[in-house]
Amino acid sequence: MTTINPDAATDARTPADLLRSSATAVWLFLVAATVVSWALGTDHGFLDDTTAASVTVLVVAFIKVRFVGLYFMELKDAPLPLRALLEGWCVVVCCLVLGFFLAG
């Protein structure tokens, strides 16, 4: 059983230690998701249905927002009401945006 908390940077000694956190994995996901969204939203898309591609791109955007909030803003370790505010914003605004988008 490890007692190392990879997200606590107090023990970091080398620059590489700074990268040893969940935030690094999240960042790689965010960059990959951006490239996929760009491909879906432009003529390089691999989904023929533009509406399906657009909905995917919008949903992915709110998933990215949630990850930035949880891991970059460190809200995953925040008191639950503050974390709930972020989760709530993502769900409500994502639903509103999709609703308005699909009605258009």
Partner: peptide, 12 residues
């Protein structure tokens, strides 16, 4: 910006 970019530039 993560929302603005797809909303304004990509969603068709």
């Amino acid at each position: 910006w993560l929302v603005l970019f797809p909303l304004v530039f990509l969603a068709r």
